[in-house]
Design a protein around this nucleic acid. Structure first.
Length: 471
RNA sequence: GGCGACGUACCCAAGUUGGUAAGGGGCGAGUCUGCAAAACUCUUAUUCCCCGGUUCGAGUCCGGGCGUUGCCUCCA
């Protein structure tokens, strides 16, 4: 079966292939604005993009995968009003915007790696590409797609005949919308390309430009960076579903008007994670982060598996009950895969090849990870040799990224620097209990077992004696 | 007001061009055990929100309801 992706542009699944003469998939994924921690909903989208990258690699493609870091302040609302998110973050924490950007970028990278998301080919920071953004605005200005107001340079969306196509906007009805602050804009769909710094105060982040001191509009960075590293036409552009309406529509408009070429062939969008049936959002205050989950005793791979249990285009409701379910599932997966580590042989039998093909079909069918997980479970139940099973697990995990190549204990160990080594004490207690059991003193035996349980030690009696582990 | 998504067992969730309901968790049962725990085995939807229609046949297609929810403001 051919590799197939759902393309937001056509609203259909389409077979994926590269344009003739190309050997690398040109990808761009919208990254975070580093003014706060990323929550697990944000991370769900990056896990989706990671499965996309891994699937493309599984199918033999090379990638030029760009992820941006938005470290320049965007306004909290369109038009003249609203605060700058970066400056707001800085004020909140009494730091400079640059410190804020650095701090939250580091935090983001930490989560990214904890979730075993593959490193992109290149991270690009918006503030490292101010000139490219200015150049792009200049091109648009030369081609007559811009106009000036008292607070900035705007894109004239009515000049772009195709503006409404991508998101299938009904521009006339859009104008009835109540939440649009027009300011001096000519049309509700117009957007800022360059904003001027306020005359009465100095911004922490501002740059010189042909139009005056200011800062770039909030869509231009993606177009500028995507095209700098991938050329005018991308193969795949991704992001969260919320970007379809405004951000990606505007990216397409400014990019295509500047180059006259299609901006991206495939557009893929991840659906939101919900919390109690509602959107998880930074602005509403409370939100869950990877560190919060880890503090509660979960492993990042528990969350990754949880994210993989549903399709990226469906919303997924987060609950601790579901996360527990994923944690249990991962545990029992490891029970089966840990003994297979290091035993991989070649995949030779017809049956093993058939399973491998089924897996490939599942991930190639618009990244159907739930189905792929089902196939992994089925393989582990088959009568295949350990060697072939081990090979298939390793092969599948290249895409699933669940670290099935490492035994669970190895990464599940709690890193507690204050932990006291009480192994000797525990073993002494177990020896006592063994004596009690020999003399059939069950009351004493059970008492010691309860005592150990309080210490977080679980014991297991078998024919060959008693074994224990920390839980 | 405009444009969308979703509704499958106790929970999560897949279901390819319509052909007779994957998988995971949980529950329950059994084996084992002094009892536990762990492990292993088995079990868990005559049915897919409701009502019509097309069809030999529909969770899958069409029409109409109901419910939940997202975007249209920075947002993954």
């Amino acid at each position: 079966m051919a590799l197939t992706f759902y393309n937001t542009a056509s609203r259909k699944k389409e077979p994926f292939s590269l344009l003739p003469g190309n050997d690398t998939v040109k990808m761009y994924c919208c990254g975070p604005t580093v003014y706060h921690y990323a929550h697990i909903g944000n991370l769900r989208t990056y896990i989706f993009e990671d499965t996309l990258c891994r699937t493309l690699e599984y199918y033999g493609y090379k990638l030029n995968h760009i992820v941006n870091i938005t470290d320049v302040g965007h306004l909290t609302s369109d038009g003249d009003t609203g605060d700058d998110k970066m400056e707001k973050g800085a004020a909140r924490e009494g730091k400079s915007v640059w410190e804020i950007a650095k701090y939250y970028t580091d935090a983001f990278m930490k989560d990214w790696h904890a979730l075993n998301i593959e490193e992109p080919t290149r991270w690009t920071k918006a503030t490292d590409h101010i000139q490219e953004q200015i150049d792009l605005v200049k091109t648009l200005e030369e081609k007559g797609y811009t106009y000036r107001t008292s607070d900035g340079i705007y894109f004239d969306s009515l000049k772009d005949k195709h503006y409404a196509d991508f998101a299938r906007l009904d521009v006339e009805h859009l104008q009835q919308g109540s939440r649009i602050d027009m300011g001096e804009k000519r049309a509700p769909t117009d957007f800022a390309l360059w904003k001027f710094s306020p005359k009465d105060k100095k911004r922490l982040m501002e740059w010189d430009s042909p139009w005056g001191v200011g800062f770039p509009g909030w869509h231009i960075e993606c177009s500028a960076m995507a095209m700098k590293y991938n050329g005018p036409t991308l193969d795949i552009h991704c992001g969260g579903t919320d970007h379809i309406r405004v951000h990606h529509t505007n990216e397409i408009a400014q990019s295509e008007c500047a180059t006259g070429k299609p901006f991206a062939r495939f557009w893929m969008h991840g659906e939101f994670l919900r919390l109690d049936g509602n959107k998880m959002s930074k602005s509403s205050g409370e939100f869950l982060t990877v560190s919060v989950l880890m503090d509660k005793g979960y492993n990042p791979m528990d969350y990754r598996l949880f994210a993989l249990t549903s399709h990226y285009r469906n919303y997924l409701n987060f609950s601790f009950e579901s996360l527990d379910s994923a944690r249990e599932a991962l545990k029992s997966l490891h029970k089966k895969t840990d003994p297979l580590i290091g035993k991989a042989t070649a995949i030779e039998s017809e049956e093993a090849k058939k399973w491998q093909q089924e897996f490939k079909d599942a991930i190639g069918d618009d990244l159907n990870m739930p189905r792929a997980l089902g196939i992994l479970n089925s393989v582990l139940k088959t009568e295949l040799s350990d060697g072939e099973k081990a090979a298939l697990v390793a092969d599948f995990d290249k895409v699933l990224g669940l670290k099935l190549d490492q035994p669970r204990e190895e990464y599940a160990k709690k890193q507690d620097p204050n932990a006291v080594d009480d192994t000797a004490e525990i073993e002494a207690l177990i020896a006592q209990r063994t004596e009690a059991r020999k003399s059939k003193n069950w009351a004493e035996s059970d008492r010691i077992r309860d005592l150990l349980k309080e210490k977080g030690v679980e014991i297991k009696d078998s024919k060959d004696g008693t074994t224990w582990k920390r839980v």
